[in-house]
Amino acid sequence: MSVDKNLLEVENLKVRFPTRTGVIEAVRGVSFSLGRERLGIVGESGSGKSQTGRAIMGLTDPRAEVTADRLEFDGIDLRSLPARERRALRGKRVAMILQDPKYSLDPVISIGRQIVETLRTHEKVSRAEARERALDMLAAVQIRDPKRVFDLYPHEVSGGMGQRAMIAMMLVAGPELLIADEPTSALDVTVQLDVLAILDRLVADRGMGLIFISHDLRLVSSFCDRVVVMYAGKVVEQLPASELANAQHPYTQGLLDCMPKIGADRHPLPVLARKAEWAA
């Protein structure tokens, strides 16, 4: 596989939800491409950032209508892919981490078994080997006593531990693209950074592509290489994370500006004056 070829190509992605009162357009023509890099998608609630991630994963609500001019993962056209092959792709080559591990881990199956099951659905490996690899993976997410955690149930571990287990489960089959939707928002700030550091190292070591979806512009800019800013279902600005301070779009500027900062004594805080043309 050549390095310069893009892992993911998204062109004019649209997600529409038909409701009784009319069609809600959650995503309205989003385009971006992703190499083996860390891409951040930032936006406020209702910006369509999560729906973009779900549409790439093929996890959009079946009532919704997803269209795109181009939606390719490693040259595979995801739009025409049969559901069975798409499922096979999910977990094996593309994985997703959700906000709260409490909701995405099965509460009645031990953490270790969930990781083993995930691995065995995608690869023909023996039970013993799967167990070995699950333990290695738990160690890779810096769980100190993998053997003990292997047999624990999701409710028996803390939020940070649960999210690490979730990362272990998602990465055990060795995906090439990882979509992380607010992976650390449910965690305490100090734990948040630990989990991000683990994620960062794994992504770098394995040469994965990462889409990091978050509402936190500052966190995303410190973690990602490139940032896509979304507003009302559209991309308003794409820029390298290091250039964020020089953002052109007033929405991006406003979003950066309105957050309180330690040491910046601004009373009142500047507020975002939304303009209708941003959503146009």
Binding site: E44, S45, H215, D216, L217, G254, L255, C258, M259, P260, H267, P268, L269, P270, V271, L272, R274
Partner: peptide, 15 residues
């Protein structure tokens, strides 16, 4: 709340 809304509410609380 979203960051932009947070700023508005914090300003209101100060006010």
């Amino acid at each position: 709340l979203d960051a932009s809304v947070q700023a508005e509410v914090l300003n209101l609380l100060e006010q």
